[in-house]
């Protein structure tokens, strides 16, 4: 699809990002501490979410508040397909028989979650992708709120607001690392594909792109479906990382966390998406350690509880003040000397 030269010129980015992720995984592996291991799993899941969000938001320039809805759909697919049939019967009696009997491994659940989310992304997207700008953002938010309202109240199928338990917990770090790396490669492949390039052209120069025959609604829809699939798979893995799902996990909190990470990292850049997660997560973790107390000599110095969140907000504001387009702006990590990609020539075709 993409010309080999683009492929060669841009392949460095996903490779560097993957190397970073592997480094994090190895750090967790060597540290051997289970809470730290869980922290890194969490970071990988955030990478999947933010990269999924980037695939749509970064390429189309339309801010979406609704992508966490797809994570919700995916998370519940994991609950429907991996919980032991006996437990499902009591928690979610309204499931159809074939689903009730199903018990599949986590990776299959992640794929199914991605597929289910992609299907709904196609349905919603077919309607929503005609909108642009802030109207599109609000429409995606309305979609999130609708999914949340339905999943919070449909007791027989989603157990309503109650936490669904019994999802097999997966505490090994490697599947999450692989998922994060896969997400990075999918996002990269899309952004150098014909559709990705067309979409970014439409983002920067809508009139010119439309005049050159780009069907904006259609390329947006493709991006929406692909990013929905990534979010769905991420949601399913999230369910496996803590063993429970509730609708409330996949609502405003996660929406703003992921969006913040993307914007702080650099909305138009895949490297920005990954770095945003890694930098903000490391910051959060560092502040939490300080909050728990650090031994200096004989005395323990601890920040008062709650300072972590305040400091996080302040740091985010400061980063955006000095780098309004985020840490990476529109450029990517290429391993060569940094070269800012001009908005006018996306993807350097």
């Amino acid at each position: 699809m993409a010309r080999p030269s683009i492929l060669r010129r841009t392949i460095a980015t996903p490779l560097i990002l993957s190397a970073l992720l592997v480094a994090f995984a190895l750090a967790a592996w060597f540290a051997g501490s289970r809470p730290f291991n869980q922290t890194v799993i969490d970071i990988f899941l955030q990478v999947v979410f933010v990269v999924g969000l980037y695939t749509f938001v970064g390429n189309s320039g339309v801010i979406s508040f609704g992508h966490i809805a797809f994570a919700c759909l995916g998370g519940y697919v994991a609950a429907w397909t991996t919980i032991k049939p006996m437990m499902k019967g009591s928690a979610m009696p309204g499931l159809p028989d074939w689903l009730m009997q199903m018990e599949i491994p986590y990776w299959a659940a992640a794929l199914a979650g991605g597929g289910f989310a992609a299907f709904w992304a196609l349905v919603f997207g077919a309607v929503l992708m005609r909108l642009s700008g802030i109207a599109a953002s609000i429409a995606t938010f309305a979609m999130l709120a609708m999914v949340n309202a339905i999943y919070s109240n449909w007791s027989s199928v989603t157990a309503a607001t109650s936490s669904v338990v019994g999802i097999p917990i997966l505490r090994s770090i490697w599947p999450y690392m692989i998922a994060a790396i896969l997400a990075v490669f999918i996002a990269w492949a899309f952004s150098i594909s014909r559709y990705g390039l067309a979409l970014r052209a439409a983002r920067d120069e809508p009139t010119a792109a439309a005049a050159s025959g780009v069907n904006i609604a259609r390329v947006r829809l493709i991006a929406f479906v692909i990013s929905g699939a990534i979010m769905g798979a991420g949601g399913a893995l999230y369910a496996h990382s803590i063993g429970i799902v509730t609708p409330d996990t996949f609502y405003l909190g996660l929406t703003f966390t992921t969006l913040s990470m993307l914007v702080v990292g650099g909305m138009g850049s895949l490297s920005g998406a990954v770095l945003g997660v890694l930098i903000l997560s490391s910051l959060i973790q560092g502040l939490r350690w300080l909050e728990a107390g650090v031994q200096i000599g004989t005395s323990t110095i601890a920040l008062p509880g709650g300072v972590q969140e305040i400091a996080l907000g302040a740091v985010m504001i400061l980063i955006l003040m000095f780098r309004p387009t985020g840490i990476m702006g529109n450029s990517e990590l290429t391993g060569r000397r940094a070269r800012t990609e001009k908005p006018g020539e996306p993807g350097t075709t």
């Binding site: 969006l259 907000g313 985010m316 955006l320």
Partner: peptide, 9 residues
Amino acid sequence: IASFALGFV
């Protein structure tokens, strides 16, 4: 996002 961060603070 800046306004959101401010609200968070």
